[in-house]
Nucleic acid binder design. Structure first.
Lengths: 230, 230, 230, 230
DNA sequence: CATGAATGAGATTTCATTCAT
DNA sequence: AATGAATGAAATCTCATTCAT
């Protein structure tokens, strides 16, 4: 049932056919986002793409295939974008904040991102998992490094990754789709307030390298109690 | 496109009919969860419900209506369940942990919860918003109270609510649907480690640039309670 | 791929639905015969049957199913008709002649018989085989009895059955479909001249009783030569 | 709907093009045989032929044309093959046996023969009739000569030809396609036993009721020859 | 209330054929 | 001559909904 994702496929380089193929992918992304997978018809896609109905089947074997390709592609673009945006950053909190911001901005530019990806669950579960798995994989490895570097408190990195992804996902959804925009940076501030303290290696104390940390406050005993109990 | 939600509608009270109505709602929940809204047919629902096809239209005007009702009902049940579970709890961290646990358990018992709700976006957007809005509303008011009580650091409560909902949502999704179960309490431990420090009223230190970061208020007693219990 | 044939299925006795079902079967028989399986559309069938397009799918899961049912039914009717026609006859030659005549008359009344059955090969091979197998089975057992009774010379009864079926088939095809009709009885005369001598228990002369031909006659050398050469 | 058959058309003589043309004809024969006319696509044919889709239309105006050509060609090859095989034979029974054997062997080598020809009925009826007419024409003239020579009893030669063709057709179908092969010569033995006595000039005996039965003509010598040789 | 036969609009998919290169 | 991208007509099949009983 699964098809190889876009990234696993060798793309032909003929610019000729690719133009139409790209037109269809763009059209599909938009139509799937607007109407949802099931309500989107092939005719909608070809109409929006400006080609004839039959042309669709020159490039894709069926509706599911183009959907999967759209999702895989969106995921890839988003991951690459975030990776580039955070590539030079040393501080994990900066990575988080920049990553969130990049994600939000991408989601705003591609208002269908959410709407498309969410549907994958019912169209091709493998594709759906792939989307989040790949995201999570990168997240986990980044967090693990940060933990090793003492920038982030030790916890199960996979669970943590899902927590942070969940924050980004829900916040993004709210910010992008529900239109009373409180301003990107203000949203980021609040989210980062939560994340910063949640992640800081020693909830209170020890500046070290960690820039966001240097808590320096007392209440050591209490903190230890917390550690023990929580 | 939107229809009034179930709660706004006058429900017939005949007990006889209610039995059939309930059968249909149960069947619909299950069928929608398994096949998705579009692929689920009225015939599937009536078959599973053990009634004749035509009977469906005695109780519901159309397919969308029953879907909306299912979603509204699920949301209501879940909210009530969580509300009851946390009702006696004074400590916000306990509320968070218990809420999460209740949610996870509900999601595991109703494996279709996610699958059904996620689709609402394309079936009836109002219903979809309603689901999260109501959830968020309760969350926001709880958090606000906790902030007022000095149990939680001051931040934009709505943004915070979405962050916490996102954590629950993603973690639940991962825990419920992706089957390598690391154990509920262990997952909760990690999540709570993040949340606890993220929420604790006396942020460790050093606001830096982040504007939303410096509550600086007292409420030590509350904090100590937090430390002790969470 | 194969479906159970009509004869193997329990037919509901509701006269209600059956009327429509029969209408569709009749229409299908005629349309398949006229246009061929592939060129016949469901719309053609329902139009001829006087029902709406969708009604087709209330009674048949797909096009192939109704085709198979038409073929099975035709075969059954034909076999029953021939069986009745020859059922009192003692003499095998009379059985052959009567069988042929019955077949020709049936084929003329159902001009689509040939055209429908021939296509079965490409639509559902099992159905195709079934058609001829069942026919052959009856033929073989009749011939074997006649051989036991000394009415027919001993030969491989199955091969013989196919020879005789072939005669009927081709002759019927020619007589029914290619329109220069030389008269049924005249055609039968010629066919029977071939068959009679081909079947008669003692190839040359002398009726007598001699059942399975215990060849007792002279000219052994010649016969042996025949056997060897022919 | 009918098109002129290949034999009536002027064939281009470019040797270059002929190679491609032949490739297409071979591919078409095989594809038509495997999938049937309607299910076989031009793309199937060109793929199997190893040429581009558009090339098809350089050599054939449409799908029907190549089909008709394939059928005509098959018929021609088969007729020529049989004609050659029986060309030296004087004895009609030997002709029959050899003809049958040649046909069976051809059918086995070209397993698509039957499948292709049978479809002609719905693709181009003229082509279908042509196939059998030409076959029958040769058969009739051969039988007439044999009757004139006293080798075969007098009967309506056309009806007789169809009887014999039917025997060959059905037996061939059974032998070629239904795989429990009893051995070619054994099948021929039985068929020839039927045919030999059916054809022998001096019908053995017993006029009885059958009207067409009493030729009573001489030609003893011939009969003896038959007996001896066949 | 309950039923289920009947409907027909609409969706996906196939493919013979054209045509610019 | 050869190519293959593009076309759009047509076919199969699904299913929400209606309605007479």
């Amino acid at each position: 049932m699964n098809r190889p994702s876009t990234s696993d496929r060798v793309l032909p380089v003929t610019p000729r056919g690719q133009k139409t193929r790209q037109k269809l992918l763009r059209a599909a992304e938009s139509v799937f986002g607007e109407k949802g997978y099931e309500r989107a018809s092939i005719a909608d896609i070809t109409r929006k793409g400006g080609v004839a109905l039959g042309t669709f089947y020159v490039y894709f074997p069926d509706k599911q295939s183009i959907f999967v390709e759209v999702v895989d592609e969106l995921g890839e673009r988003l991951r690459r974008l975030i990776a580039e945006a955070v590539s030079g950053l040393k501080d994990r909190l900066q990575v988080e904040r920049t990553g969130l911001r990049t994600f939000f901005e991408f989601a705003r530019k591609h208002p269908n991102l959410y709407r498309v990806v969410r549907q994958a669950e019912f169209v091709d579960e493998a594709c759906y998992r792939r989307y989040y798995d790949r995201f999570a994989r990168g997240y986990v490895s980044g967090l693990t490094q940060a933990m090793d570097a003492g920038q982030v408190r030790r916890m199960d990195p996979e669970v943590l990754a899902y927590c942070l992804m969940g924050i980004g996902d829900f916040l993004g959804m709210r910010w992008v789709m529900w239109e009373d925009d409180p301003g990107l940076e203000r949203v980021l501030d609040t989210a980062m307030a939560l994340i910063r303290h949640g992640l800081e290696p020693r909830p209170s104390s020890k500046p070290g390298k960690s820039p966001a940390a240097s808590p320096k406050r007392g209440a050591r005993g209490a903190r230890n109690a917390l550690r023990t109990l929580a």
